[in-house]
Design a protein around this nucleic acid. Structure first.
Lengths: 330, 330
DNA sequence: GTGAAAGCGCTAACAA
DNA sequence: TTGTTAGCGCTTTCAC
């Protein structure tokens, strides 16, 4: 293995100069820089970045905590993170946590172990058991913990859900069911709030029977559809808190003989790629997945460079995408 | 920051003993081990893993090169990698390469930079420009380079494609189109071979007009459908080399007024989660995505532990999943 | 602008 | 079983 020593010998300079020539070229004279560069080429020298990181006490690596990487929404967020990280010479360690707090905590431990400089958490939980101050650089995106000392990239979930509910209302729907996510998710709470607000505006009473629980999987959408569609007073529209559940609902509704949207309108959330290939194509709320990732990475980068984040909460725009899974109430 | 020195002072032993107590507990007496453990707890010591890695010249990290992490098939493969890595204390660095050779090479450089110990390549290309020997521990999965010195986890793509074509043939189809992937992918070549073999068995001549090019995206499936379905002699079945393209084909065919499967059978490859939620649900070839990942990781782990891989090519099982997008030829 | 030298926190010979 | 000590390859003062 060739080290910085070898290069310094070949170039006839000290190791310090070689180091400078690589990391702060303006600190060495043009002549020596060229000598060093030539020596590097001649010896085929590749710096040992792990030694450098050790020496500088940085890793130029961040870890991203994701509940499930095979979820198409999250994988796009991760792509956003990765691409901006790549551009500035950072690497990203993948922490697929399945939402398991102990796995989250163990990944978060990587920054104390100096394997990573910071964390992007895509789940709504702080990955250190019980600390009231965040001991490591962290930014929160997508789902979020409700704390104003943690930089957060989020959608205005309540507003978006309200807008979608209003769309349904405007089509004449009065019995609008919801397939929500887990209760401990702020996503669920916020969207539920927006839904309730929209109903309240029209003086429609909230009916608990119309609120089904899901876990963001298509299968849970199917289950919810079973319950909702066997109700005495069936809903004429179902608002699912993500597209996968909506696909499950739509699939099952059609199996039961319902026609979408003639008998039943179905809407989702996220606008994953497959939403447009559903039959009928799914009306949904588009989230800028890659932007979540790149914004989160940008904010984290700022923190790692010692800047205090100026805004603690960035809102990304959503867009109601109306396709063919919604129609006027029967 | 508390270091191993602090612990050694508190425990009243040498740093070497502390180090041993942590990494090879059986090398120290029970009594000292307890002293050390107590001191670690007392000082809240967290080993600096980056220093340890530097010292041992290992990173316990691997990098996975993936053309597109937002592809649902790949993201499941990655999940397989990640979960088995996690289990043995390895981390995985994400290299989303968009198939770009220069990005692949730069990620591969991380092992020379000692940031990673090995590579899992999910694309069919060697990530070092021009080297004829692989300079770093590498295993190949999913798509593959045709070299027998590189451990590979693959599907018997030709066999699977032949079986699927036979299924179509058995339904009476004679004009079977293909939407293939990029030509430089061995996946494409192998599947094409299997397709051709099946046709040959029935003495059906290969018709180039029936072979459309795609890039594994749903949009490219739509394009292919446009071409294929405007042919003078239309196909009665279309075999797509992944599910996304099949979804694009099906979507577009329905828009053109074709009924699937009455007028046109459509099949895919992969069995991504959404295949079963298509309308009609998609007949496809199931690949064990997570297994690709975990097998690849296991083989790489073996290599990193100095074992010579026993089998250079592992084949994973596929399964023809017949749903409702295929029917007898019109 | 350049060099000498002192670490960074850990592991692993080697000696005791 | 334990301690002493010499690195690992780099960066970074501090002199010159």
């Amino acid at each position: 293995m060739t080290t910085i020593r070898d290069v310094s010998r070949v170039a006839g300079v000290s190791v310090a100069t070689v180091s400078r020539a690589m990391t702060r070229p303006e600190k060495v004279s043009e002549k020596t820089r060229e000598k060093v560069l030539a020596a590097i080429a001649e010896t085929k020298y590749k710096p040992d970045v792990s030694a450098r990181n050790f020496s500088t006490r940085k890793s130029r690596t961040i870890v991203v905590l994701v509940p499930d990487i095979s979820n198409p929404f999250f994988s796009r967020v991760i792509r956003g993170i990765e691409h901006t990280a790549q551009r500035v010479g950072y690497s990203v360690l993948l922490g697929d946590t399945r939402g398991d707090p102990s796995i989250e905590d163990s990944y978060a431990g990587m920054v104390e172990a100096r394997l990573a400089d910071g964390i992007i958490q895509l789940n709504g939980r702080l990955p250190f058991d019980g600390a009231e101050e965040t001991p490591v650089p962290l930014v929160n995106a997508c789902d979020c913990v409700d704390r104003d000392d943690i930089p957060t990239i989020a959608l205005e979930n309540a507003k978006a859900a309200r807008a979608m509910t209003q769309h349904l209302l405007s089509l004449g729907h009065r019995r609008i069911a919801v397939v929500k996510g887990p209760n401990d998710s702020s996503l669920t709470r916020e969207r539920l709030r927006g839904y309730a607000e929209a109903l309240a505006e029209e003086a429609i009473e909230l009916d608990d029977a119309l609120i089904a629980e899901g876990d963001f999987s298509a299968a849970s959408g199917e289950n919810a559809a079973t319950d909702l569609l066997s109700l005495q007073q069936k809903p004429t529209a179902i608002f699912c808190f993500n597209d996968e559940m909506a696909m499950g609902v739509m699939h099952h509704a059609k199996q039961l003989g319902f026609s979408v949207p003639a008998d039943l309108s179905v809407v989702g959330f996220d606008d994953i790629q497959f939403a447009q290939y559903c039959d009928p194509p799914l009306t949904t709320i588009r989230q800028p997945a890659e932007s979540f990732g790149s914004k989160a990475m940008t904010v984290l980068l700022g923190i790692l460079q010692g800047e205090a984040p100026t805004v603690m909460r960035q809102h990304l725009p959503y867009e109601i995408v109306i396709r063919q899974s919604t129609g006027v109430a029967p």
